[in-house]
Design a binder for these strands. Structure first.
Lengths: 113, 113
DNA sequence: CTGCATCCAAGTTGATACTG
DNA sequence: CAGTATCAACTTGGATGCAG
């Protein structure tokens, strides 16, 4: 994650956006909110249009940012579970709100057709 | 803006993210929330690191998405004012929340140094 | 003052094949 | 099962100059 330092009052808004602004981050956080715990393969199925590379990359970024936990089971076959951290959970109300807003906008668009 | 249609439950989250996920959109919405009305040049000063091209481009996207109003005064010199639409205002609680979260995270990071 | 046009650089995502 | 590696394509942002 890039550095970010300036004296703008909205600095924090920008900061937050960069942490959750990836193409799939919103959806991953949402799925982990709804399901609490998901394995790598389960996330892959839910995000049906994601490549393994992007999924791994995105999960690593979220992990580095302290938003998700990664729990590895050293077994055969391997098993890795992902879940929200406390910090990640703090974002849920916000994602909830965003989802409601999105639903509303989509409904509005459909009613125009 | 690209089409987006699938049957995922989190569809709306993704939809919303694409509408406010640009590099400067969060900040612009925030400034328009705090100041209510801003002229092109004022926004440019506040977003001191933005180029005119990006500012115009971003404002057009927000306008097309129905989040900001653009009011042109046909005078010399020209004058253009931007403000939030009703739909745009609905995003404010969300941006507020996000800002608080961001401030908190930044404080946390600083305390670790 | 408020932009638009052009060209280019950088960053982000995708496709495909392969591994412990 | 859960990833990595490599390369290509796409998207976004920046620099500069000009215009109504």
């Amino acid at each position: 994650m890039k550095k970010y330092l300036n004296d703008e009052p909205s600095c924090a808004v920008d900061y937050a956006f960069r942490r959750i602004g990836g193409k799939y981050k919103g959806r991953i956080l949402w799925y982990l909110h709804v399901n609490t715990i998901l394995r790598y393969g389960e996330l892959r199925k839910k995000l049906h249009d994601i490549t393994p590379k992007m999924l791994t990359q995105t999960l690593r970024e979220l992990e580095d940012d302290g938003l998700v936990n990664r729990k590895v089971y050293h077994e055969v076959p391997p098993k890795v579970e992902y879940s929200l951290t406390e910090t990640g959970k703090e974002l849920i109300p916000f994602i909830d709100y965003l989802k409601q807003w999105g639903d509303k906008q989509i409904a509005k668009e459909n009613s125009k057709l």
